[in-house]
Design a protein around this nucleic acid. Structure first.
Ligand SMILES: [Mn+2]
Ligand SMILES: [Mn+2]
Length: 620
DNA sequence: GACATCG
DNA sequence: CGATGTCAACGCGTG
DNA sequence: CACGCG
């Protein structure tokens, strides 16, 4: 379980607050006196910290502990530097500071509340009675005061945890928030400058990180480098020297640079980011040998999606200037998710933060508005027809004829941030675009298979999805899968706009019926609910003009503020859960991986062979 | 959520 | 003035 | 044509 970085402390009775210890995160599994100690990348720590192993060995139970390996100074502070020092010199008060208990004597505890788990953990630690294993305490509710203490003590920061939260394995969670006193950032060493004056070996480190998959220059760091550190860095960097810059773009450094392969990761602290994304006053803190360079991304404080900002942005209304238009945002503090206490303002912030990724999937597509003006637990309604009288003039729309009512409908087009924010302000929690665009309204860009489980375990949805992929793979047809964010999965099959809705629907029906033949027990192609109880409904009927599917990266009006998340096919497995992706953790995935559905519009599938088989089956 | 109408 | 009321989809399949 | 369904 990882913490989400936020930017300000808060008081809340549902939360508890712990010291943020500065060392290496480590899991210890103790079973029959045997100990496994490892990092969150499953790197074995046992050999590096035999003292910790020796201490936890004496625990008289079978346990799995979560904690941080640190060096405590006389003031009970931890510094990453001291731990580095311990590794080379063996000096310092090494402590395994534990804060969670996952298993106890064969019982899985993940589903207990945090407070229940910590209470059991405290008993285990007390019973052990070894100074090398300590229990990380907490304060309840008063986060602001605790943050002041963190500042005075020069801690790295504090962790806010939801008191009733379960333990979420391996995931970054909205129930654990990291609030830092100083800014820190992992960075990749990409080169170094020549030494000046009395300094030896090297002058400053040239740092970079991966932003949207691109290696980006983030500044030079000359602070925090003493003679021993310079010596160590120089030794490690020499073998990595290369003639050319690892950056795609030319970087402006004042000094000539010796470039190195971007392999070595370090931790720096800094005062702030400059406007053009450069670290101001960075100070080197140490190497992060536990981190692969590909994992180094901007750790931007999540100013927006937190308890913290709700109080900070406590104003009722906001006016944002987006795309040169003033967008009035009303009732920003209104609660849209009562249980999660997520506000309308947070929803706006989410969509603006992922706008660059979601907008390409919305451009020129008529929108079905599904409005929840009073949150997810109150009545909602659909709206397709805009009242152009009361719509800002800068909102683009298109008038389209509805066959069933014989009326013309003015559909909203969501082509920029301003329109997106406007939609959300109307109470649109989810974003429902057509499958076709204004340039070719009767030809969808993709055929969609909508997999809806009806009282059946999600693993059968995964199974059905993999069967659909396996069925299409032999035709060399590229398919894209995402969570629906509600209960099922969506599979998109790009058609290059070469076929009508009617044809696309026939494709989808053919696929659905074939897969239903393979999995008759667990799937159904019948829309009537009674006929598909305890089955996965292979819904092919969304492939029609005017019908919609929740867009990629759309939030859903569901508990947990889940998000429809594009997946790699290898992620479509037994571990996948709908709840893996929500309004809090989706941006981070996007910042790291970019839009993995970016290519869906340009993917060219040759469907000729497939069409032959569909026609053949229609004949017989 | 936005607007019209009522008391 | 605030309180209250009104309105905000559509296509497909089945019986 | 009304209704269920998403
Ligand atoms: Mn669905
Ligand atoms: Mn469906």
């Amino acid at each position: 379980m990882l913490a989400t970085l936020v930017d300000a402390p808060f008081d809340d009775a549902d939360w508890l607050f712990e010291t943020k210890w500065d060392g290496y995160r480590a899991i210890a599994a103790v079973h029959n006196g045997k100990v496994q100690l490892y990092s969150r990348n499953e790197k074995d720590f046992g050999k590096d910290y035999p003292a910790v192993v020796a201490a936890v060995e004496n625990i008289a139970h079978s346990v799995v502990l979560d904690g941080e390996i640190i060096v405590l100074d006389s003031k009970k502070n931890s510094h990453f530097q001291s731990l580095q020092n311990y590794k080379t010199t063996g000096k310092g008060n090494l402590v395994y500071m534990v804060f969670d208990l996952l298993h106890l004597n064969g019982n899985e505890l993940q589903q207990l509340t945090l407070l229940e788990r910590k209470s059991l953990l405290k008993d285990v630690v007390t019973q052990l009675g070894d100074k090398r294993v300590q229990y990380s305490g907490h304060v309840l509710k008063k986060g602001k005061a605790f943050f002041e203490k963190a500042r005075r003590q020069h801690w790295e920061g504090m962790i806010a945890k939801k008191a009733d939260s379960p333990y979420e394995e391996g995931r970054r969670s909205a129930s654990w928030l990291k609030i830092k006193v100083t800014n820190e950032q992992e960075a990749i060493i990409c080169g170094f400058t020549a030494p000046r004056g009395s300094r030896k070996k090297l002058g400053a480190l040239v740092l970079g990180l991966y932003d949207d998959k691109q290696l980006k220059y983030i500044g030079n760091c000359g602070g925090g480098l003493n003679e021993a550190t310079l010596d160590m860095l120089s030794k490690k960097l020499q073998p990595l020297v290369q003639p050319t810059s690892p950056f795609d773009r030319k970087v402006r450094t004042n000094m000539p640079v010796t470039w190195v392969k971007p392999k070595l990761v370090c931790q720096v602290k800094f005062s702030e980011w400059t406007g053009d994304g450069i670290l101001r006053m960075p100070v080197f803190l140490g190497l992060r040998e536990d981190k692969p360079p590909s994992d180094v991304h901007p750790e931007t404080p999540k100013t927006v999606q937190t308890m913290a900002t709700v109080t900070a942005t406590a104003e009722k209304d906001r006016v944002l200037t987006l795309n040169g238009k003033k967008v009035n945002l009303t009732n920003q503090q209104k609660i849209y998710w009562p249980k999660e206490k997520i506000t309308k303002g947070q929803l706006v912030d989410y969509y603006l933060s992922v706008a660059q990724y979601i907008l390409p999937h919305l451009k020129d597509r008529p929108m079905s508005l599904h409005r929840f003006p009073n949150g997810i637990d109150k009545p909602s309604f659909y709206q397709k027809d805009l009242d152009l009288e009361q719509t800002p003039a800068w909102i683009k729309s298109i008038a389209l004829h509805a066959a069933s009512t014989g009326k013309d409908v003015d559909y909203l087009l969501c082509n920029n941030e301003a329109a997106l924010a406007y939609m959300v302000n109307l109470g649109c929690i989810e974003i429902n675009p057509w499958l076709s665009r204004t340039s070719k309204l009767d030809n969808p860009d993709y055929v969609v298979m909508d997999l809806d489980p009806e009282n059946i375990d999600f693993k059968y949805v995964v199974e059905a999805a993999l069967h659909i992929k396996a069925f299409l793979d032999p035709y060399k047809i590229t398919t894209f899968c995402k969570t629906s964010g509600s209960t099922g999965l969506h599979i998109y099959i790009p058609t290059g706009g070469k076929h009508s809705y009617d044809t696309g629907r026939l494709f989808a029906e053919y696929i659905a019926r074939q897969v239903n033949k393979q999995l008759p027990k667990s799937t159904s192609v019948t829309r009537a609910k009674a006929a598909r109880n305890k089955k996965v409904y292979l819904d092919f009927l969304q492939n029609s003009r005017g019908q919609t599917v929740a867009a990629p990266y759309s939030v859903r009006p569901k508990p947990g503020a889940t998000v429809s998340m594009p997946l790699q096919w290898k992620e479509v497995n037994e571990k996948l859960k709908i709840s893996d992706f929500d309004l809090f953790n989706s941006q981070e995935r996007l910042n790291e991986n970019g839009d993995i559905w970016h290519d869906i519009q340009t993917t060219k599938n040759d469907l000729r062979k497939f069409i032959r088989d569909v026609e053949q089956s229609a004949d017989s």
